[in-house]
C-alpha cells in the first residue's frame, strides 16, 4: 500500500497572529512557520502503518509557494520516503487543493490518503471531505484510531456526542483528530538524510487542475477585544459578584 500525506505550511501554533493594518489578511512576514499540527499527526500515523508492515511507501505532498518544500522536508525528516510539491503562488482554496490532491493520488496510485482534519490558519476543516467526495472513496473524518484489516480499515471517529466506529473499504481517505497519536520529533541524522530524499516538482497546469478562486476575501479584521476584569479573593466575594453584579447565577 502507498500512503499519501498532504501537509500544509502554517504560522506556528504558538505565535499570536496580528491582523495587517490594511485588513487584507494577517501578518506573515518574518513570522515563524511550521507544519500544521494535524498534518504532523497524519505523517506520524502513515509512518506507523509503514513500520507495522501495512505500507511500502509514504509520500508527502504540499502545494503553494517555494517555501512549502521546507514543510515537505519536515515530513521526510520524520521518516517519509519522498515528496511531491505542487508549486504555485496562487491563493488556494480547499476545493482547488482537493482537486490537486486527487490528481496526485491518482498519479501515484495511493490507496490511503491521510490528512489533518483542519489547518490552524484558515480553520476550514474541508479538504479531506472534499477529496473523498471527488475521488468517490469512503471518508473517515476526525479519526482517533485506525486499524488495517482484511476488509479495509476499522476506524474510530471523534464526534460531538462521543466516539463512533466505522468499517471502511480500501482505498480510502481519512482525516486525523488530536488523539490519534503523538507525532515523533525528527532526529538530527534523519534531518540530514531527508535532504537527499527526492521531491518531485509539479504545477497545477501539469496536473490539469482548475484552481480559480470561488471566494473573495473582502476584509480581515481584529475580533472585539475582551478586557480583563477584576480579581476576587474569596468564594463569598465571587458568588456575591456573580449573583448581584453579573447576575448569571
Amino acid at each position: 500500500m502507498k500512503i499519501l500525506v498532504p501537509v500544509k505550511r502554517v504560522i506556528d501554533a504558538n505565535i499570536r497572529v496580528r491582523v495587517k493594518s490594511d485588513q487584507t489578511g494577517v501578518e506573515t512576514a518574518n513570522v515563524k512557520m511550521a507544519m500544521n499540527p494535524f498534518c504532523e499527526i497524519a505523517v506520524e500515523e502513515a509512518l506507523r502503518m509503514k513500520e507495522a508492515g501495512h505500507a511500502e511507501e509514504v509520500i508527502i505532498v504540499s502545494a503553494g509557494p517555494e517555501k512549502c518544500q521546507e514543510t515537505i522536508r519536515t515530513g521526510l525528516a520524520m521518516g517519509a520516503d519522498r515528496g511531491v510539491f505542487v508549486n504555485t503562488e496562487a491563493t488556494l482554496e480547499p476545493l482547488a487543493i482537493a482537486k490537486m490532491l486527487q490528481a496526485v493520488a491518482d498519479k501515484e496510485g495511493a490507496e490511503l490518503v491521510i490528512l489533518g482534519k483542519q489547518s490552524i490558519d484558515d480553520d476550514n476543516n474541508q479538504t479531506g471531505q472534499m477529496l473523498a467526495a471527488l475521488m468517490q472513496r469512503p471518508l473517515g473524518s476526525y479519526i482517533s484510531k485506525i486499524e488495517k484489516n482484511d476488509g479495509g480499515f476499522a476506524i474510530t471517529r471523534e464526534i460531538d456526542a462521543g466516539l463512533e466506529k466505522l468499517q471502511i473499504t480500501c482505498p480510502a481517505v481519512v482525516t486525523t483528530d488530536l488523539r490519534l497519536n503523538e507525532p515523533r520529533y525528527a532526529s538530527l541524522p534523519n534531518i540530514m538524510k531527508a535532504k537527499k530524499k527526492p521531491i518531485e516538482i509539479l504545477t497545477p497546469e501539469e496536473l490539469g487542475v482548475d484552481i480559480s478562486n470561488r471566494m473573495e476575501v473582502v476584509q480581515v479584521t481584529e475580533p472585539p477585544a475582551r478586557d480583563a476584569g477584576v480579581m476576587v479573593s474569596s468564594a463569598a466575594e465571587l458568588v456575591e459578584k456573580l449573583k448581584n453584579e453579573a447576575k448569571v447565577i
Binding site: R137, G152, G162, L163, E164, K165, I168, T169, A172
Partner: peptide
C-alpha cells in the same frame, strides 16, 4: 463502502 459498527 462504509459500514456503521457502533457508537460509544
Amino acid at each position: 463502502s462504509i459500514e456503521f459498527i457502533g457508537q460509544m
